Amino acid sequence: MKTDFDLMISFRTPSGFKRCAQYFLGTDRKFAESVFQQLTGHEDHTGQAVLHLDLVESSSGLPLRLRTLCCKLSELSDNCALVTKELFRQQAIRDESHPIEKRGS
């Protein structure tokens, strides 16, 4: 059974939270959790947070929220940069033992 991990970004509206972005973190739980642990924010015990970051595990199409982090807009900007950097590092940068093939070869 395939399990996917996503980072869902949502904001509070008068009718509840609305998703505004989603990062696909892949199928590696360890990677997804390590990225989430690096994010800046706080747990909202008062229920007043405006922005939420949710780590979501989906198995057989059924989503399960694993953790939630609340942040300010400035923190969201930093968090998006961090997630993009980590995804790029994981997907695009290969170590020297696995060189990237040249196009057309």
Rank of each mutant, 00 (worst) to 15 (best):
M1V: 14
K2L: 13
D4V: 11
F5L: 08
L7Y: 01
M8K: 02
M8N: 04
I9T: 02
S10P: 03
S10D: 14
S10W: 02
F11L: 00
F11Q: 02
R12Q: 05
T13S: 13
T13K: 03
T13I: 07
G16Q: 09
F17D: 03
K18T: 06
R19W: 03
C20W: 05
A21N: 10
Y23V: 04
Y23Q: 01
Y23R: 07
L25N: 00
L25D: 00
L25G: 00
G26T: 08
R29Q: 14
R29P: 07
R29H: 12
K30R: 06
K30S: 09
K30W: 07
F31R: 07
E33N: 07
E33Q: 14
V35F: 07
V35K: 04
Q37D: 15
Q38W: 03
L39V: 04
T40D: 13
T40L: 15
T40H: 15
H42C: 09
H42Q: 15
E43A: 11
E43H: 04
E43W: 13
D44E: 07
D44A: 08
T46W: 07
T46N: 14
T46C: 12
G47E: 07
G47L: 02
Q48P: 10
A49V: 05
A49Y: 01
V50C: 03
V50N: 01
L51T: 07
H52E: 11
L53H: 11
L53I: 12
L55P: 03
V56M: 01
V56Q: 06
V56F: 04
E57G: 10
S60P: 01
S60C: 11
L62C: 13
P63I: 06
P63S: 10
L64D: 06
R65S: 15
L66C: 01
R67L: 04
R67K: 14
L69S: 00
C70P: 00
C70E: 02
C71M: 05
C71E: 05
S74M: 13
S74I: 10
S74L: 13
E75N: 04
E75G: 02
S77N: 08
D78V: 12
N79S: 14
C80M: 15
A81V: 13
A81N: 15
A81T: 10
L82D: 00
L82R: 02
V83D: 00
T84E: 08
K85P: 00
E86G: 03
F88L: 13
F88R: 10
F88M: 10
R89G: 05
A92R: 11
I93A: 11
R94S: 11
R94L: 14
S97Y: 12
S97N: 10
H98A: 12
I100V: 15
E101M: 11
K102Y: 12
K102F: 08
R103V: 06
R103G: 09
S105Y: 10
S105F: 05
